[in-house]
Design a protein around this nucleic acid. Structure first.
Lengths: 241, 241
DNA sequence: ATTTGCAGACCGCCGGTCGGTTTGCAAGAG
DNA sequence: CTCTTGCAAACCGACCGGCGGTCTGCAAAT
């Protein structure tokens, strides 16, 4: 008799454990290439045990997605409930939720996370995640823009559409960021870094112009972002002796 | 012995036939849910026959994608080779490649095509297709913008990044368009139509501002676009007697 | 006779099902 | 307070249908 010994656990704990294993595996192997059996092995659970808690592999995916979105939304609620700051300050906070999150947690890990999420095999995962974030962020951003319009700070034709456009724009740098990350340590790194900076600048500039603000208003930087990103270690550094 | 009779065909013809069947099935059932066997049945070919022409299911997908991108690229080549028009006219032609294509072919069919492509199950298909179009369109758009900058018409900080942003922006209306299409015939149709018009206007306005043009410059409309789209028949009209 | 196009049995694997087994726990009997 | 007893929740793992892909062989074309 090997480790055939079973180990009952309260449902929530099991669920959490399975979700944790699934998340790791989804990131490392991609959703499609991750087998239920992979999850079972990592969690030391049987098929029956798994299907007692999840009714399908897709439900597992949605569970992981929910867990990821939770962190984002909890921070957004803080911004949404702020009634005293100006619209521009709120926008500042809103835009920097992501950057702040990255800075406060270990950034290299986040870079790797971003890199893995943007692989082809994780396209479904990433796109679904983006959709959830957009859906959750819309009402918050709409309120901010509406407030800015009421204050006379912003000028847009349609608040909803503007919010949607800004959220749409918010992933523009991802392409350049991904290329920069993949170019780390190669001879094209400098060029990619320049283009990344250009993409960031252009994204902020476009944000200014969409909201009818003077150029440069929303360039609430984190100037060292590009350098920090490029300094992150690639998966396989040359020092393998 | 049923229709076990075999039917040899020249390789290109078979390939085209299989690609045609695959395209239809991919659109109707989605890529993941389409079985090789489905394609075999529709084309009346055996597994061996199929794998004689394609080495995997993915290669079949890429084949379909190539076929779809071909039409787009052939039109873009025309714009790219135009050396006489002004940058603004070139941009006009470039932006309207899609709209012109839609108008010249049967529009209702294109609407249905768009609707199907934007279903969740076709996410991989759509995203890969968008990527191909972006890749093919980049050099053309870069040339146009560069020309505009040389002429002094456009003002951008970085030509490549501006081109990328504009291509990125070009799919912004898709969300509103999809919602409008799905709202046809329902009580929310009017609202969706308004939002679609707002999205179109905002996309053009943003294009102006990204390129440093006066507001309204690039609003080379097709003013009846929204009405025509909304007038398209939904899949199941009420007159089924 | 040789090459090319094709047929269809076959393989390994995956997501999902199902009947049965184990475990924790609460209620009643002593 | 302890010891059955009962039962639902948690879990196991053999099993199934169907998938993408391989392989051997044969028939048509040249």
């Amino acid at each position: 008799m090997k480790s055939t010994k079973r180990k009952n656990m309260p449902p929530e704990e099991r669920r959490a454990q399975l979700l944790g294993c699934a998340q790791m595996l989804f990131f490392s192997k991609g959703f499609e290439d991750t087998t239920i059996q992979d999850v079972l092995d990592m969690a030391s659970v049987s098929k029956g045990g798994f299907y007692h808690h999840f009714k399908s592999k897709d439900e597992l995916l949605f569970g992981v997605l929910d867990g990821m979105a939770e962190g984002v939304f909890s921070q957004m609620a803080v911004v949404a409930s702020d009634g005293t700051s100006s619209a521009l300050d709120l926008l500042h906070s809103f835009i920097h939720l992501r950057a702040n999150y990255l800075r406060e947690h270990d950034y290299p890990g986040q870079v790797e996370f971003f890199r893995v999420m943007n692989q082809d095999k994780n396209m479904v995962l990433l796109e679904q995640f983006k959709r959830r974030v957009r859906t959750g962020a819309m009402p918050v951003l709409v309120r901010i823009i509406q407030k800015g319009c009421d204050e006379g700070t912003f000028t847009v034709a349609d608040v909803d559409t503007a919010a949607e456009l800004i959220l749409f724009l918010s992933t523009f740098i991802d392409l350049a960021l991904l290329r920069a990350i993949e170019a780390r340590g190669t001879e094209t790194a400098d060029h990619a870094a320049e283009k990344l900076q250009a993409a960031i600048d252009m994204q902020f500039l476009t944000l200014d112009r969409v909201l009818g603000l003077p150029d440069g208003t929303t360039n609430f930087g984190w100037p060292e972002a590009v350098d920090v990103t490029m300094a992150t270690q690639p998966p396989l550094p040359p020092s393998s002796n």
